[in-house]
């Protein structure tokens, strides 16, 4: 009799992908780590990190956190009401209508920046901090809107009815039910915008004028074929990695807490 394959476990299918990940994702990160702590003579050094703090790069990072925070907050303040309206009746029955707000996501972002920059030129907003912030908000708007809209649309509407039946007005219903339940969408929207802004030097270089920039631009120029700056660029990348880790930790613990709130809410 032929042997029967009882447990079929084609885990080997993941091996090509794993190899690619190790070679092109893990090894490069390790290289950055090594170069960040390696002096010109190949010995261990902390000089590159001294330069990060000494040569004004740290204030650039703070500036980047600033412009990222300002843009993300403005974008959230616009996207939340829009998502809220689109997820409420009668708009929640017009899926194509919501699509219109998200379509720009599929248009090349550099072309959108070009279009926006042209319009700002017409209405007389000059290159500078404000133009760069408008650029960020415009560019990331669909990415902020989509997760919030999805969460609000799929929210269990019986909570809202219960709240109203129990006598809460619509403001109280919003702050006690809708807002906490939509928090995971808000967090995912923020995380799709906040960190990517660190790399958005395409926007600040073209719209921000001379005085506005993000740290991504510094890293890109430090690596620009100049081996001397290589360690400094790696050290900066390393600092960014740490910031990413902090942001990821914060957002997962925040959404973890809101998931707990949800569970508790269901029990009571």
């Amino acid at each position: 009799m032929r042997k029967k394959v009882k447990t079929f476990r084609p885990t080997a299918f993941a091996f090509p992908y794993l190899t690619v990940t190790i070679v092109f994702v893990i090894v490069p990160l390790l290289l950055i780590l090594v170069y960040a702590f390696r002096g010109a003579d190949g010995s261990f050094t902390l000089n590159h990190f001294k330069d990060v703090f000494g040569k004004g790069y740290f204030s650039k990072i703070i500036d980047t956190v600033g412009i990222a925070a300002v843009s993300t907050v403005i974008c959230l303040l616009i996207a939340y009401p829009v998502a809220f309206i689109l997820a409420s009746s009668p708009f929640n029955k017009m899926a194509i209508f919501a699509l219109l707000f998200i379509i720009p996501m599929w248009i090349n972002f550099m072309l959108r920046i070009f279009a926006l920059n042209s319009l700002l030129g017409i209405i007389g907003i000059k290159e500078g901090y404000m133009a760069a912030v408008i650029g960020m908000v415009y560019d990331f708007f669909p990415y902020m809107l989509l997760p919030i809209y999805t969460v609000l649309l799929n929210m269990d509407k019986s909570y809202l009815e219960a709240s109203k039946d129990l006598g809460a007005n619509s403001f109280k219903t919003f702050t006690k039910i809708t807002l906490p339940l939509s928090l995971p969408g808000v967090i995912s929207g923020i995380s799709m915008m906040f960190m990517p802004i660190f790399s958005s030097y395409a926007i600040t270089d073209t719209m921000g004028g001379a005085e506005t920039s993000v740290i991504g631009a510094n890293i890109a120029t430090l690596f620009d074929g100049n081996a001397d700056n290589y360690g400094l660029g790696s050290a900066l990348s390393f600092v960014l990695l740490l910031i990413v880790l902090v942001v990821v930790f914060l957002s997962t613990s925040l959404s973890g807490r809101s998931a707990k709130v949800k569970k508790v809410g269901k029990v009571s």
Binding site: I26, P28, V244
Partner: peptide
Amino acid sequence: IVDASSQITIVNTEIVTAMGFYSL
């Protein structure tokens, strides 16, 4: 473990990923 490693490029900021390819 594999799921976590596939998240690296998603959560990492693009400029660091780009520098990774450059360093490699």
